[in-house]
Amino acid sequence: MNKIISYAAASLLFVSIFTACKQEKKLPFYGERHAEVVKDAAGVEKIDTVYQTIPNWAFLNQDSVLTTNKATDGKIYVADFFFTSCTTICPTMHRNLMTVYNDFKSNPDVMFVSHTIDFKYDKPSALKKYAKKLGVDGPKWQFLYGTKDSVYTLAEKNYLVAVGEDSTAKDGYIHQGYLVLIDKDRRIRGAYDGTKEDQVEQLKKDIPVLLAEYKK
């Protein structure tokens, strides 16, 4: 009899441990962070962690319209760096990103932003042609053109993606194929290799997780 009770107690303990572990899944934060003293709503001072955020930006999009961070403010978005004449990793990246785009096409809280790193050739008209041929229409996926300095700094300092000119590379530029997931507060919450299908599948799973964080 005693044995039965202790068994029951042990199994109850296990069940409670396992259910207690189930908490809401949250995505990690990437980049630099520091502690800051902030005042909460009641005016009480407390220490909070401040994460790296994407600064304000302004670029021309595929319709030659000046587009700023206002387009993505209050939304989560996926950012990447590419160029239209790239024959190596970009076609694969955008083939995979297209499937993400199609999955979240009807969700107004999700956007896509592709920065070109070819400041010489990829003027807005070239980007428009590329977008159309890829099969993208409308403002949900922005293709952005900017000066070398502004785009390269944004890539390396803020999105943490390495880009560069390289005359020895086949197409003249080198860059990493990361798809970077940004939350509604401009913080980096994920980076996925756009050339790998399994990582892109993970991105598709993580977008709803990130959206759920804001549903309260």
């Binding site: 297209m98 890829l134 050339t195």
Partner: peptide, 16 residues
């Protein structure tokens, strides 16, 4: 070839 023409030769939009 695969990065543009696809794993099953399906191409990529009007690009390839």
């Amino acid at each position: 070839c695969q990065n543009c023409h696809g794993e099953n030769g399906e191409g990529l939009g009007e690009l390839a």
